[in-house]
């Protein structure tokens, strides 16, 4: 049975570390869905998250035309799986959020050996409409255990 929230619960925040890639889908104005991997989902506050915008141009175009997005992320410690339904709000090109995400993206890029590929264009902020816990995972698990 799926558990639902109208905000980002504390238990979901470990799934926003960027260790296991997150998946995101959008839809264009003609009704064509698009799905892609994203490097980073960032906690902003209980009702907002941010996505790193690097080079996924179709996603960028879609959400500016049609804001709804569906995001699926996995906790690297317990493997709990969360789905977030959200709406694009704005893109930040500077400021503390942008700087924090750029720094964290550099770490992810280094781990993946993609320093030359991962460059933050903007921190795209989304308003959270609904969060579903699709799978509770196993709280006894930790990576590398």
């Amino acid at each position: 049975m799926t558990t639902r929230f109208d905000h980002i619960p504390a238990a979901m925040r470990p799934a926003m570390q960027g260790i296991i890639p997150t998946c995101m889908s959008t839809c264009d104005l003609e009704g064509e869905p698009n799905v892609t991997y994203i490097s980073q989902v960032w906690y902003v506050d209980e009702k907002h998250l941010a996505i790193s915008c690097q080079f996924f141009n179709k996603t960028t175009k879609n959400v500016r035309e049609n804001p709804p997005a569906s995001i699926l992320t996995t906790c690297p410690e317990t493997y709990a799986v969360w789905r977030v339904n959200a709406r694009y709000v704005e893109s930040r090109l500077e400021g503390p959020l942008y700087e924090e995400m750029a720094d964290h993206l550099a770490v992810i890029a280094s781990m993946a050996g993609m320093q030359d590929v991962f460059r933050l264009l903007s921190a795209d902020v989304y308003a959270v409409d609904e969060v579903e816990l699709l799978h509770p995972g196993d709280p006894a698990l930790t990576v590398g255990a």
């Binding site: 995101m24 889908s25 839809c27 709804p68």
Partner: peptide
Amino acid sequence: PGMYATTASPDRVPEVTR
């Protein structure tokens, strides 16, 4: 590969699944 799929409603709201 790790795989995900998406569909969208007639009013263009997407839904992703594993």
